[in-house]
Design a protein around this nucleic acid. Structure first.
Lengths: 331, 331
DNA sequence: CTGTTAGCGCGTTCAC
DNA sequence: GTGAACGCGCTAACAG
């Protein structure tokens, strides 16, 4: 067993080995300064031989730039967020940034803690999917370049931030209109009421009914518990008591529980509407209309806006609204 | 619009405001030293009023401890990895660590780059799902506490690392045995050959056949392209030319393409075997046997082993092998 | 072209 | 109990 040297060489070690000052090493390795080609070559060789790599943390405190972006999301296990993160990760790699991801599980306390830790880490910027529960982001956005995604903050007395959101209302509106076109007449909806997003989706449902001259029946509108424990029961109500021929599930957690019940009860004919496309949906028994969120695009726009604000913290605020795409599986 | 002060207060600012030295502020805020209760109270109050938070980056260079763990995985979009990451995130939160996640997309070049960047960030430890393509980790594991997950490194001349892997061979062996028990006799398998993991899964398939006295027919063993472009064609071969009544897909990417073809061709009776459970699987038309990997457990064990090695870098090597759990959907 | 000096923000001697 | 001085590893300013 080779007992390798555990010490990590510093710029000082390289300087000593090369018989020059640390400043010269720094310049030689960072390229952009004037150093004789000869000494540069020599220093590069020695650095390589010693396995020297600059300590990015030390550089960060000196440069007041960490090249780290803090990302705050609800959970990594939801496809919407994994896809956004995947998109952000790719952009980060291309631009030499690192991502630190924190999750809230929709709990404002976790969100506060997450933002606090990230700012203490001196991140160069923040990308946040806020729970929106009255957290005051005024000081944060004034000090750190910040882009909100998915949901707008509700309580910020500053315009020094950007945002990229999805037109959820329009999404459900298109969604439900398609379902009606495909023959649905008694359409139930189950949402979860946690976020503003969810309410927007409900509004879209109502608008679609209005546009199609279908009266809004409040008994067809169900809100589930935050832990989704009652979704299956609500599904039964919609199916059997209220004779629905179609159900809209406003997110995938709800959708899976709806399907669990309809499969159990061996329901053959029902139309399903939902948000957030997953490739698994093509194997579901029913016709299904999906409002797919532009996750990759959200990542791209958020990253771009963040880069711009990092470059110019006082630039004008930009709020971008993106649209969903409807995907249809007709049985 | 309130124009808030953009400057982030440092320990120096607090000291000046309180009329004490920075040393006293540091002591007062970090608790553990001897400071008069009076001045401590006062300093804490002032710090709070000023919105002071310690600069963790600066602290890191001083303490030679970043409280950051680097995680290297294949992709964030695969459920196996998201579940492991979710588990790790929870443990990190509980222990005041941050996670920086880098992805390889199974490309050794990306892996090398990722590890390089993370070590330059002076992470306190590494958790790595290596592509296993001959990367020499000797120097890395000698310098940084490292735990490998999912796959063992192939080329390390040191035992200063730990690992937690899954018994893939046993997984497929159990999986296929169940399929046989449920009536399958002509069982095809499609795997992707990229990683050692995949080969182990193939071996388990062969062992299961042996144990059940079914001759191994090499023509039923298919390896797909890395981009999975030929999976659907291979599925057709297994179905129509080779008359399979069961197909094993060694990961979810393959599985989805197999299903795509069987649905297209309106296949009614076929048995499916696969790795990595997803809740969506309960809505698939066919009987299905899944070897579920213990993702949460993998995260827990990996984190624990890492903590132990951080505490004692010279401790004895531990290689943990965990088992899959079989989940069955009988139509 | 290169070395010396200074300082980023912090925690820790070592005096008083 | 408190302050002055030092150093973590690095880059930038100023000399020469």
């Amino acid at each position: 067993m080779v007992e390798s040297n555990k010490e990590i060489p510093t710029i000082k070690d390289v300087a000593k080995q090369a018989g020059v000052s640390v400043a010269t090493v720094s310049r030689a390795l960072n390229g952009n300064q004037r150093v004789s080609a000869e000494t540069r070559k020599k220093i590069q060789q020695i650095a390589k031989d010693m396995g020297y790599h600059p300590n990015l943390i030390a550089r960060s405190v000196r440069m007041k730039k960490t090249s780290i972006i803090g990302v705050v999301i609800s959970t990594v296990t939801a496809s919407f967020f994994t896809e956004v993160i995947d998109s952000l990760t790719e952009l980060a790699e291309d631009n030499d940034y690192q991502l630190i991801i924190a999750r809230t599980n929709e709990n404002p306390k976790n969100e506060k803690k997450a933002v606090e830790v990230l700012t203490q880490q001196m991140v160069d910027g923040l990308i946040i999917a806020t729970t929106g529960h009255e957290i005051d982001y005024t000081n944060i956005v004034n000090r750190f370049p910040t882009v909100f995604i998915d949901r707008m903050p509700t309580n910020v007395n500053s315009s020094k931030f950007d945002a990229v959101v999805v037109n959820n209302e329009d999404g459900t509106k298109k969604l439900v209109s398609f379902m009606i076109k495909f023959g649905a007449s008694q359409i139930g909806i189950i949402n979860s009421e946690v976020t503003a997003t969810q309410n927007q989706r409900l509004n879209g449902y109502k608008k679609a009914l209005q546009v199609n001259a279908i009266p809004i029946d409040e008994s067809l509108i169900k809100k589930s518990q935050v832990d989704y424990s009652d979704v299956e029961g609500l599904t039964s109500q919609l199916l059997f008591n209220l004779r629905c021929d179609a159900i809209v599930a406003t997110d995938n957690e709800i959708l899976q529980r709806v399907l669990k019940r309809t499969y159990e009860r061996n329901i053959k004919d029902i139309q399903i509407g939902c948000f957030d496309y997953s490739p698994w949906m093509q194997f579901i028994r029913y016709p299904i209309v999906v409002a797919a969120q532009p996750t990759v695009q959200i990542g791209k726009v958020a990253f771009k806006l963040l880069m711009q604000r990092i470059k110019n913290p006082d630039k004008a605020q930009e709020i971008r609204e993106l649209n969903t795409t409807i995907k249809i599986k007709t049985k």
